[in-house]
Design a protein around this nucleic acid. Structure first.
Length: 416
RNA sequence: GUGCCUGUAGCUCAAUGGCAGAGUGCUUCACUGUGGAUGAAGAUGUUGAGGGUUCGAGCCCCUCCAGGCACCCCA
């Protein structure tokens, strides 16, 4: 029989993979809550109008899944969360407490060519601090990101958060004599300088009408690791990060610009240092979150992290725990048909004591143990005629192969 | 959306245009109260799909599908 294929770019999460995802969520929840952020969620379906105002052109026109509903109205599967957040904030702008610290984790869809680190359906952690324009706020979000990286076990020599400030770059471009109208083009080119060979890049920049002198100065600019000292904001940002003890995870990088147009200040991306994966997370400061959806102007800072790349990185560094499923679940064997009621009662008792219990079926004990082993369970109980006669139970450790005979009331202690 | 590469057993891979294989895993038994080992036996394939060339195609050609890599974009 032919199995009907899943939609291109989607993934099935079998129990082991689901356990890994939930482990990831647990970590990012910890990082979020460590800074007092509250979880929220919006709909996965939105109108196309919501994105028309805010998102990058390409993100909506080329990459969003859009299809008519049964009434013929266009429905969009959300390609990002920020516009939804903007609406939610704008709708209750007068009753929410600001600055608002919110985080979310959920599915998103983008019609892209699937490849390593990129799927069409992915999960994304979004976290934003809305209603503050301070450097403190910027530093806080970078700190949340660094805290997360630390929590999952990544070291600062494995992964780095690269930071820049668009205001600083804007000033430097002015100094080089690049007019306001040409800046977006130049910023785009800077953003992708490492993706093209040096000569190709220079040719492309020259084709846009920039002079050789300007190109030279841009190269100089991008090689200057100390450029951040010219920015009051970045200097302060690094001070704050040092106070949080997280500065080793963060470094200045003048090439970081980021594609989305709404970033107006500090921008940052986390990358692995050696393997060259895609960006693990990315975000920045925006001047006006809700203006385009009809609210009063509100600044903020936030970032997003997809589940795909971070899991690839964690996998590469061997940081995903092996045994995530069934840790505390025990197996109660069934000696034979006659003793099934006794095993069932035992299982029931254990459940009422808070244990997860898998009740086996009456087969050869060897099969039952093998089943427990393959499920990844750590303990198995045997209740046979011998044990039943003396009111005891065999508790077997499936890892060490050791087993002990214990009284019924001592089961809990032996399951620790 | 563009270019290039790949697709053989559950997994990793072999097979000059000439009988589809190995390792591993899986099932059963040795072992009717015990899953790690050992030994024995066994099952599993429309070689991604469809078409073409050929006496003959896993291998060559075309189309499609899926995956990977680089663009594009970005989490």
């Amino acid at each position: 029989m032919k199995i009907i294929r899943s939609i291109k770019g989607t993934r099935d999460f079998y129990p082991d993979e689901m356990a890994r995802r939930m482990w990831l969520v647990d970590k990012l929840r910890q990082a979020s809550e460590a800074f007092g952020y509250q979880q929220y969620e919006g709909p996965c379906l939105e109108t196309i109008d919501l994105y028309a105002a805010k998102s990058g052109e390409e993100l909506v026109k080329e990459q969003a899944f859009v299809f008519p509903d049964r009434g013929g109205d266009p429905i969009t599967l959300r390609p990002e969360l920020t516009p939804t957040l903007a609406r939610m904030i704008a709708s209750k702008q007068n009753e929410l407490v600001f600055p608002a610290r919110w985080w979310s984790f959920g599915p998103f869809w983008r019609y892209e060519r699937p490849q390593k680190g990129r799927t069409r359906e992915f999960y994304q952690w979004n976290i934003d601090l809305i209603g503050s324009d301070s450097v403190q706020a910027d530093a806080e979000l970078v700190s949340v990101a660094a805290t997360f990286l630390k929590l999952v076990g990544l070291k600062s020599d494995q992964v780095q958060i690269l930071v820049n400030d668009r205001r600083l770059m804007d000033r430097k471009l002015t100094e080089i004599g690049i007019g306001q109208d040409k800046k977006p083009e130049m910023l785009r080119m800077i953003d992708r300088i490492d993706k093209q060979p040096a000569d190709v890049w220079e040719q492309n920049v020259a084709d846009l009408g920039f002079s050789q002198e300007q190109i030279g100065k841009i190269r100089e600019l991008l090689a200057n690791r100390e450029l951040w000292r010219e920015s009051v904001e970045l200097s302060q940002l690094f001070d704050f990060l040092a106070l949080n003890g997280l500065d080793e995870y963060v470094r200045y990088e003048p090439k970081i610009i980021r594609g989305l147009d709404y970033y107006t200040g500090v921008v940052f991306e986390a990358h692995d240092v050696k393997e060259g994966f895609r960006a693990i997370l990315g975000g920045g400061h925006y001047a006006n979150l809700v203006g385009d959806v009809g609210g009063q102007p509100l600044p903020g800072v936030g970032f997003a992290m997809g589940d795909v790349v971070v899991m690839l990185v964690l996998e590469a560094f061997g940081l995903i725990p092996e045994e995530l499923t069934h840790g505390e679940t025990v197996l109660v064997t069934v000696f034979n048909e006659e003793l099934l009621p006794d095993s069932m009662r035992l299982a029931s008792e254990l459940r009422s004591m808070g244990f997860g219990v898998v009740l086996a079926e009456p087969e050869k004990l060897a099969k039952q143990f093998k089943y427990a082993d393959r499920l990844g369970l750590k303990k198995a109980l045997v209740l046979g005629p011998d044990e039943l006669a003396v009111g005891k139970v065999v508790v077997k450790d499936l890892r060490t192969f050791e087993q002990v005979v214990v009284d019924r009331d001592q089961i809990i202690a032996s399951l620790k």
